[in-house]
Design a protein around this nucleic acid. Structure first.
Lengths: 205, 205
DNA sequence: TCTACTTTTGACCGGTTGGTTAAATTACTT
DNA sequence: AAGTAATTTAACCAACCGGTCAAAAGTAGA
């Protein structure tokens, strides 16, 4: 019983993940999730009490998938250049493997911004340390004098935006050639760091 | 009768704009739009035949609000540096005045990517010329050798991302202080170009 | 004022949606 | 094998949603 219920629960979560991430909370239908999982709709309510609860489980899971890389960026001790390069590669890699999660998370967060507080309680206190690390390298002359927050937002935006804007970007620049756009995204694993490096680091030997 | 009908139509469009942009096609309710406009729900169907038609009117309007700046970026004759600087300022300014449109447009485009074709038919042919202009400046040694498409995506991402990710960015970096985040966005009108300029332009006198 | 027309309304409809419930099936224990 | 608890199903429901329709209210010209 234990085993089977874990199987079913995982089956439901997988189906819910697919449908919710593709269609959002309001676009998704419980019946569609049930069909996707190959089970009865009532089972959804047996394992998760409501649509909102099921959605919340999916959302938390999606959101947390991107926290490890952020953690290592913020918490690790290494020069900013080293950490940024590793972060960008890993982060874009993670998004390539979960290309619809960023749009999903951003959309649902702007629908319900309140739910953020609970998710960030532990991390928020670590951010200032990373901002200070950037500021220290600015003071040491290794990074040009940009607002550290601007640098971080720029980094995240450069990683995430091409996935959120994929339909329009792929159409405009790649005549809707999916394979070509995938290669474009692959290239960004190195191109984005080259871009940021060229933007913020000072010359020195 | 003519005058009143134009008033009502504009009233409906304004209400629909507010509700659709905030909640999306699937999250919006016709009744809510009617309430927002202070009229009967049947009137929505009298002026616009269906929810989809009304949504389409709102979407087209929102989408086109950002085309003029893009046009001037692509079609104008001037050095890339000059055009980019003007574009970034104007573009961010436009988004500041319509902060929810980018998220709205991106979300609805990823829900229905087909609808793009009709919107871009005339513009698409002009893009290669702008790409070539960037390539020419690369060949002339004035811009570092980045893929021109990467440069454009980067520029757009740097402009748009802080608005799409506002809830999380404002929470993490500004303790949810709206006024502080507004100032942050204001600063980006110059900061983004400084960043891009530092990234892609070569030193020369 | 009468008439023809447009605009606005309220009542209503069929289909869909998230959710409930009780019965049936399965799995586990002894 | 029997009994107990957990799992799964089918049938059902009230609320909601987009949309229709006929009547009412408003408008303008004769």
């Amino acid at each position: 019983m234990e085993e089977q219920s874990q199987n079913t629960e995982a089956l439901i979560l997988e189906a819910a993940r697919k449908v919710f991430i593709e269609k959002g909370l309001e676009g998704a239908r419980m019946q569609e999730i049930a069909d996707e999982a190959g089970i009865n709709k009532s089972l959804l309510h047996y394992y998760f009490r409501s649509k909102d609860k099921l959605f919340h489980a999916v959302f938390i899971e999606a959101f947390q998938k991107f926290l490890p890389q952020i953690d290592s960026l913020i918490l690790t001790q290494a020069p900013v250049a080293v950490k940024l390069e590793a972060f960008i590669t890993n982060y874009i890699n993670t998004i390539i493997q979960n290309p619809f999660i960023p749009g999903f998370v951003l959309h649902e967060l702007s629908r319900d911004p309140q739910s953020l507080a609970e998710l960030l309680k532990s991390r928020a206190s670590m951010v200032p340390q990373f901002l200070q690390q950037i500021q220290d390298e600015i003071d040491a002359g290794r990074i040009k004098p940009f607002d550290p927050r601007q640098i971080i937002i720029n980094t995240l935006g450069l990683c995430i935006f091409p996935f959120v804007a994929r339909p329009i970007a792929q159409t405009i620049f790649f005549e809707n050639n999916t394979e070509a756009y995938n290669q474009f995204l692959e290239d960004r694993k190195t191109e984005v760091f080259k871009f940021i490096k060229s933007a913020i680091f000072t010359e020195q030997q």
